[in-house]
Design a protein around this nucleic acid. Structure first.
Lengths: 335, 335
DNA sequence: ATGAAAGCGCTAACAA
DNA sequence: TTGTTAGCGCTTTCAT
């Protein structure tokens, strides 16, 4: 436990060469080093169980091969897929990921930005705090390359953004319902204070419009992204005897609540009422495999964000890019 | 973007002092530095937007304030809570967490161990690969302080372990059912190839034994941790007309599948059949709030593991510790 | 109360 | 093909 770590100096001495030579060997800048010394050095490295000190290397190269990933909360089932996609892409290029939970707290977010700066991460992938509003200071002064994911936000000095096209996602979903001959489609939405939620509502409206179906604001119920709200809202819809034949849901929790309530009232899915929802948190597929959903490409979002970052870091690719990912319509039994 | 970073050298020059003084000020080793110079240095730091380079610091202090966290897959809903608990405790002491997904692959795990070693993380928290069996090499030669969580494993040179008492967890769950007057309790289990699963089965047996209920191996069905298996197994139980009045489930997916099937057969819960399961992946609480479950203290597991690690790192607390966490019985409607 | 200087382990010119 | 050397930015004795 206590014994000093082996350094290239030790190896150099042991091999009777200079540290420069050893360094080159371990960095595969071998081109003009004799196979003999190369092999000797490698062997000694193995024998002594040499572990390079990448901190020392980072100090001179100014690269840490580490990225920061800021998400609101990894426990929110929306984010693990993003983290996994990010980590997978990172690993492909030998980067590591430092994960940070911001809880949508601007101060925490700024603090992490600082810490990551100090740790010299090569880049930061960030789902910016929903509460940031106009408090851009921390973000704008961030000297580390930044890529935004999921939530759009106006900012200078960005490397890029990776977003989801929520408008066309709900447009596609609602259109699909319409083409299945559901004409009276209610929308149980989550809170409308995010761009995401507004886009989804717009997609719903646009789909109706393009199919010459009149928009009826009584069929749009705005509440929370919780299954209880799905239950309550669907109950309201059926109790008020609205003439509906389908329900489009703001996310999967809502959809699950709605399905449950409909079931309790012996309303058959999809014969009596069709149901569709965003698979925001991937519960549908686990628990209600019969629910037709719009699947978020979260894994891809994380993967592409890191891909964009590494592209920037390694190829000096600086043109700002905005990558807009499409969702998938997962067709199952219920519609 | 291109301008050189400010260093303590710049600040020292600007303030007309030595780098040593500047360093001490920024490290709060102020005791004998005049308030005047202190303030001057701090002001210059602020004005120049000085960001300390913790890589350089790490090189000399041999501390990175970074921990590694190895989990099989952050997308598996079992792990985000662990990661969150770990990150929360880490943040309290200004540590960061590098997250690594091993996919239960020994080679990947060993590779991460290496990378983290090179990055000089101060410690590693690890859910060891289920497939490791006797391939201890990578782990045993790891020079970084190691703490095991969730899955037990025999290993020298450990700082400690944080585990869950699965035996007494299922013992408590089954006992609770028995005390609620359910006497014929079936057990739908996941695969028995892990210590965890075996412990749970033993707890079940022990609870029966202690309550003088005879163990009937026909009532124990072994399958997968999937809701489909919960459906299939419960179907088998009712079709074979076993005389049961409760089902104890190996995890929540199984329980959800079972509940669904029972519902489809108009079997009432909990009147006809009581149900209980391990809330392994926290789906119950989201989707089936009426399901009584045994909640895993995963957040706490992550939190305590990092706590133990930091205790070791900062207080040289070396006695090997095994912390065994208890589960909680979450009593809801169904039992 | 402050400064000088050595050095953490490594890389990268530049020399040889 | 290999060695010399000068740092990277910081901490830390030991002087003063």
């Amino acid at each position: 436990m206590e014994k000093r770590h082996i350094t290239i100096k030790d190896i150099a001495k042991e091999a009777g060469v200079s540290t420069a030579t050893v360094s080159m060997v371990f960095n595969n800048k071998d081109k003009n080093i004799s196979k003999a010394t190369r092999d000797k050095i490698l062997k000694i490295g193995k024998d002594f169980n040499y572990i390079p000190n990448s901190i020392a290397r980072s100090l001179v190269t100014k690269r840490t091969n580490t990225l920061g990933l800021l998400v609101p909360d990894i426990v929110n089932p929306f984010f693990p897929e993003i983290a996994r996609g990010a980590e997978d892409r990172a690993r492909e290029s030998s980067y590591s990921i430092i994960i940070c939970n911001t809880d949508d707290d601007v101060e925490r977010e700024n603090n992490y930005l600082n810490v990551l700066s100090e740790k010299m991460v090569d880049g930061i992938i960030l789902t910016h705090s929903a509460n940031r509003s106009d408090e851009k200071k921390g973000l704008e002064s961030c000297r580390v390359p930044l890529i935004l994911i999921d939530r759009d936000y106006d900012l200078e000095n960005l490397i890029g953004k990776v977003l989801i096209d929520n408008t066309s996602a709900s447009y596609d979903g609602v259109s699909y319902l319409i083409e299945k001959n559901y004409k009276k489609i209610a929308y149980i939405a989550g809170p409308l204070n995010t761009r995401t939620a507004k886009d989804r509502l717009n997609g719903y409206k646009k789909a109706l419009y393009d199919h010459s179906i009149e928009y009826d604001e009584n069929l749009v119920l705005v509440g929370e992204y919780r299954s209880q709200w799905g239950s309550d809202a669907s109950l309201r819809l059926i109790e008020n005897a609205y003439d509906i034949d389908a329900i489009f849901c703001g996310n999967d929790l809502i959809a699950i609540g709605a399905m449950k309530t409909l079931g309790e009232h012996n309303i058959k899915i999809p014969d009596d009422i069709g149901i569709m929802g965003f698979d925001d948190i991937y519960i549908s597929s686990l628990v209600n495999p019969e629910l037709t959903t719009i699947k978020q490409p979260n894994y891809k979002m994380g993967y592409e964000a890191v891909n964009m970052m590494i592209d920037y870091l390694e190829n000096e690719n600086i043109k700002e890019k905005t990558l807009i990912l499409n969702t998938d319509l997962i067709i199952r039994k219920s519609c």
